[in-house]
Design a protein around this nucleic acid. Structure first.
Lengths: 338, 338
DNA sequence: ATAATTTAGTTAAACGTTTAAGTAGGTATT
DNA sequence: AATACCTACTTAAACGTTTAACTAAATTAT
């Protein structure tokens, strides 16, 4: 037989209200004897309260959604882990979702999470389309944006990385090391991160008196394959370069592979710099000098921000006037590709 | 105002039962006109049913727990993704949990999942201790074991990898390539996987007329550091070896790094073989020949098995007499470290 | 001694669904 | 013409909690 609060109440000879109060630490006015009787009954029957039933009345599930493009992409496990750790510390659980950066999947997940009454959502969304705006607007629970920025009144917080400054630092580092012909294998300009990093790249060049040469900048996907293809594009053109700043580590790894294949030594002939500092970065040959994003911290802080919002009574009524934006700084990790 | 099924019923001029039936496709006996009225009301108010409330009566949340040691370990994201994909296809959501292989954390998560009324649980558990047995026994929902075996009556299914055969295949491959002095950097014998792989290693040797030399076998952790340390142990002893079979890819990567550091060329001087085929394996230098575990498939099939159990009326009453065990085969991935 | 307050509970409504059982009118069957 | 069976719904109970409002007894204050 399934045992509920009723059985416990009967066993202990009290009302279910008393049991509920004791189990929720609202038991100032309960005698020690009663408490012991109830707790004994709980143990005897190995009773575990049904949180869903409680949620129905409290309107809180202590479940939050975490929507990411793909946990299989080495960039995301750190974020997931950070978010999960914080959630767990605070008694929350995470429902996690992979979207493959597809808008319709994001939409579906947000609806599912709404149905299942998630208390809030953290999302690394795909795009800044009009549709995205609508979807966010329609969502009834607090939303935190992570990693990818997007303007929306509805959003109640953001945890971002200072991509412009990261790229600026990275390229400045290259310049300090004496490189002057710095190519850039960027991700797609459709992404905000790529645009910001491009701006950082340009700014670093101009602040250091170097000229921006659009022939040295190529756009592709944040993947190893693009690193290879990008290098080939660069090599097939006449333009000289002594180093490559890459949109992320995967591109950098692909670039290194292809450069080596073509007989170039790294960093001897060409310096290569990555972005992200994924787990791989320290293990490839040569190990990758890169701009680290504080992955774990990003996840952790996003969850922290969400939980603050959930527990702040002022914000209860979707009254998110003062959206909080946390911008985390990057850090240069010096290894052997420069 | 929060809108519920009542508002929809009122708007459409029907009872809430009718709305519920229409929304759950139990609407054989509903006229087209009524259906349209209801659906219009749903759209007008942008109504999303509260799944928790439904769960209370159906006793199904369509939520399952996925308990893994650490999503940050490159071995696990594939499993998580496979499980999530299958769950998503079938209208289920995953709550995911990282245990760092700590028994007390596993216990806590299982309780949380029970409270939140997960319909079932998939777990890659830490150990085969007595305590684990108790914990599983106490858990009221179907449990699937993944990756790590453990005997328990309570468990209703397992998805495992044939580690013995995997190691056998791997070592046989080495032998076929002409290696005869094959060292083994194993994981800890506390883990079942390590014991199985050791058995496979021994069997491959004896089946091929090679002698088992315990001096060539070293035990450590499934980590890069152990790969380095293990190589140093091997080198510091007089015993000769022409190749190393490694307990997993991380060990292999560490081993390769350390061998190169000591001036050995791979695979020229020493062949190195891994186990797992994590994402990294194809990217290190030289790329790693390894025994692939079908990660994604493991997660996918574990979820498949769980959902079958959940939807099989015979198994409803915890009547899991015929536990299903799926053993997946490994596959040699030929790269350049052999 | 009486009133006011505190203590230690209980009662009952509420949360938002699903679903078994009921019903009224219409159609088909004998 | 009476009976059975559909059709298209409605009614009301149930799921397992939480919590506001109530109460009876004990204690304290006046």
């Amino acid at each position: 037989m399934k045992i509920t609060i009723k059985e416990i109440a009967k066993e202990a000879g009290v009302s279910i209200a008393t049991v509920s109060m004791i189990l929720n630490n609202k038991d100032k006015n309960i005698t020690h004897a009663t408490r012991v009787r109830v707790l004994d009954a709980v143990k005897k029957y190995n009773y575990v309260p049904n949180a869903m039933a409680g949620s129905l009345v409290t309107q809180k599930t202590h479940i939050v959604g975490l929507i990411l493009p793909d946990i299989t992409n080495p960039f995301f496990p750190g974020i997931a882990r950070g978010a999960e750790d914080k959630a767990n510390e605070s008694g929350y659980s995470i429902i996690f979702c992979n979207t493959d950066d597809k808008l319709e999947v994001e939409e579906k997940y947000i609806e599912t999470l709404t149905k299942k009454m998630a208390d809030g959502i953290i999302i690394a969304h795909s795009s800044g389309s009009e549709k995205m705006s609508e979807i966010l607007e329609r969502c009834k629970v607090p939303i935190i944006l992570i990693d990818r920025d997007f303007y929306s009144e509805k959003v109640c917080g953001k945890v971002l990385v200072n991509n412009l400054e990261g790229a600026y630092k990275g390229v400045s580092y290259l310049i300090n090391k004496g490189y002057t012909k710095i190519a850039f294998l960027s991700g797609s300009l459709k992404t905000r991160t790529a645009r910001d990093r491009l701006d950082g790249y340009k700014k670093a060049l101009s602040d250091n008196g170097l000229e921006y040469d659009e022939k040295l900048v190529k756009y592709g996907e944040y993947k190893i394959e693009w690193g290879k293809d990008g290098v080939n594009e660069l090599l097939s053109e006449t333009r000289q370069f002594d180093s490559i700043f890459c949109g992320n580590d995967l591109i950098a790894i692909g670039a290194i592979k292809e450069l080596k294949k073509n007989g170039y030594s790294i960093p001897g002939d060409v310096g290569v710099m990555g972005f992200d500092d994924i787990y791989l970065a320290g293990l490839v040959e040569p190990s990758l000098t890169t701009v680290r994003q504080p992955n774990y911290k990003m996840g952790y802080q996003a969850m922290e921000l969400l939980l603050e919002t959930l527990n702040d009574p002022d914000k209860k009524n979707n009254n998110f006037k003062e959206m909080e934006i946390i911008t985390l700084d990057t850090e240069i990790i010096e290894r052997n590709s420069i």
